[in-house]
Structure formats: structure tokens, C-alpha cells
Design a protein around this nucleic acid. Structure first.
Lengths: 111, 111
DNA sequence: GGTATGTACAAATGGTGGCTTGTGTTTACC
DNA sequence: GGTAAACACAAGCCACCATTTGTACATACC
């Protein structure tokens, strides 16, 4: 298995959990502390920390210390491998996106 | 959890296995029988059948009988929920696609 | 230094999932 | 109807994972 394929495996496994996706949603707009996430999602501190570790090892979030708190933020570019995977199976979707974009560009040209 | 979220969960769990992704790759171009897939991927018949069931319940493949054989084919449109998920977290990627498409449109306009 | 807060680490548990083995079921062919 | 081929279903085993419980570590404040 190539390194990219291994990354894809790790990323997909990390995404294949509802609580981890909730965490990703929560850190999407701004960095959040573990305790805040746990409280907001009604999860224990330990389970939240565990999921954040899985997400961090997958490269989907990154941590930064702020005193005693650990602020976690989204790393959306890691989703690249997933997007590439989907598009490799579904070029029609990519074509549809391009078509929509080109339509937008055409409209802008006209306007 | 909404129905769409449940679908996303099932699809991501189905994709989060290397052998199932290999099976998807194998049925990508044309429908394949269980035995052919098992032989080509060096998997047992039972395990291949099991993975195909998971993929079918996730809506990623569909089956069709051909005599004693069961031909499985890709259902790429099910990957829609995954693409939407990625794009909801990463609008910049969609923007990049649009930018590239617009660039193409501009080039076409010039040419 | 002592205490409180925020978090990570470790062990144990229950559940889930992948794989094997064995077997039933459907279809085709004689 | 009997046999063979292709496949699905079921039970058991083992590993992994999510969660809980308990605890250790780091930082801020007094």
C-alpha cells in the first residue's frame, strides 16, 4: 500500500465515526478547547481527547497550547485525499462542478 | 441523526476498509462476478461476498444475476454524500475547481 | 510550594467488524 | 431427478475500537 493510500485509509477511518465528525463540525469555524468541545457535544473529556487524538494523527486537526488549554483547529486540506478518491470514482461529478463553474463564468462575462 | 447523516455514516464506514476499496476499483470499469473478484484480489469467496453485501447496503454497488453468477457494478452517485461532506468542510477546494474551470472558460473564449 | 484547572495517558469493558469454516440455496446441465 | 457451479447465510474466533474509570502531568494562581 502506498503512503497516500495509507493516509486515505487513516483519514476515512477517522471520518467514519459520528462523534468525530461532530467534533470536526465544531472546530470548523474557530479553534476550540477540549473541555468546550466535550461540554458542547455532551461527551466525556477523555473520549473527546481520544477522538481528537485520532483526528490529529489523521491530520484532520492540529493542536495549539493556550495556557492549560489545548486549542484544536480544523486542517481541511487533509480532506484532499478523500476528494481525490471520490473524483477518481466519479469524474462525472467533477465535470458537473466544472460545468456549473463555467456557467457561472459565462454569466459573469455576460453581466 | 438525519437520514442523510445516517447514509453518510454507512457510506464512510463502507469506504473505510482497504479490501472494499479494492473491490470498488475492480468493479469501476465493468460489472464483475464474486468469484472473479475473489480470485483477482486473493480473497476468499465468503469474505468477498461479505464485503459486497456491505457495499450494496451502503448503495455503493448494485447486483444483477447472470445465471448462477451475481454481477456487481459500481454505483458512483452514492459518493455524492461524501463529496458534499468534503465540500462543506472545504469550500476552498470547490473554489479552486471553479477557478480552474473559469480559467479554462477564459482560455476557450480567447481561443 | 500548594492547590485548582485543563488535558493526556493507561487499564478494563462491551460492542463491532473482518476473517475462517461449514453449510444451505439457486441455477444450469446431463 | 441428480450433479456441479456460483453464491449467500450462519456460527465462531480474534482483533480492533469506542467508552468508562482512574490517574498522572502541565500550567496558572495564591
Amino acid at each position: 500500500m502506498t503512503a497516500a493510500a495509507a493516509d486515505l485509509d487513516v483519514v476515512l477511518k477517522a471520518l467514519a465515526d459520528p462523534n468525530r465528525r461532530l467534533i470536526l463540525r465544531a472546530v470548523r469555524s474557530s479553534p476550540r478547547a477540549v473541555g468546550d468541545l466535550a461540554k458542547g457535544l455532551s461527551l466525556s473529556q477523555q473520549v473527546t481527547s481520544h477522538h481528537l487524538r485520532v483526528l490529529r494523527e489523521a491530520g484532520l486537526v492540529h493542536a495549539e497550547r493556550d495556557g492549560t488549554r489545548h486549542l484544536f483547529a480544523l486542517r481541511a486540506d487533509t480532506l484532499d485525499v478523500v476528494a481525490d478518491f471520490v473524483e477518481s470514482f466519479w469524474p462525472k461529478r467533477l465535470a458537473a462542478l466544472k460545468s456549473a463553474a463555467e456557467h457561472t463564468a459565462r454569466k459573469r462575462r455576460r453581466g
